[in-house]
């Protein structure tokens, strides 16, 4: 590497660690006191962790500087290709659909919700082959349900109305 100005997220990571450590520390201190033994016993270990987060976070911040983080953001912006934008979109859609999946999971039952979820993600990744996606996600959800429910004896949410 040539003499380049450093670009990293260390300053940001460090400050997140410090903030998280402070919040965690305050919460640890405010925990209910233990009714028996040392009243602070449940808080001590978390307090040590909080101190560690703040300390290591500060050290990381000092090793780097805000300018590097700014450069890192600029670098990402500069280097972003269409492919990156696409993959970020995919991640966002996956997260959103996973949250929807979690919400409907116990209401629609395993088979229907999973069929929709897996089918949707497949379509997000590959828009052109909708028929293939429908078939595969249907087989997947039915097969997994069958394997878990009947072979492994693990109950998954049932399909409403049909009750299977």
């Amino acid at each position: 590497m040539e003499k380049q100005k450093k670009a990293n997220f260390d300053f940001l990571s460090g400050s997140i660690s410090v903030i998280f450590g402070l919040i965690y520390g305050v919460m640890s201190y405010n925990l209910k006191r233990s009714p028996m033994g040392d009243p602070l016993a449940p808080s001590i270990f978390p307090l040590i962790l909080a101190a560690g987060m703040v300390l290591f976070g500060l050290m990381l911040m000092l090793k780097s500087d805000m300018a590097s983080t700014k450069r890192a953001f600029a670098l990402i912006k500069e280097k972003t290709t269409d492919n990156d934008i696409l993959s970020r979109k995919m991640i966002m859609l996956t997260v959103v659909s996973a949250i929807v999946y979690a919400i409907v999971y116990e209401h629609l039952g395993y088979v229907i919700s999973t069929f929709l979820f897996v089918g949707f993600i497949m379509t997000v990744l590959d828009r052109k082959k909708i028929r293939r996606n429908i078939i595969i996600s249907f087989i997947f959800s039915v097969m997994v349900y069958y394997v878990f429910f009947y072979l492994l004896g693990i109950s998954l949410p049932m399909t409403p109305i049909l009750n299977i």
Partner: peptide, 10 residues
């Protein structure tokens, strides 16, 4: 990959 995600959730 979508199938791996499906397995992760189940």
């Amino acid at each position: 990959y979508p199938l791996v995600l499906g397995l992760a959730f189940v």
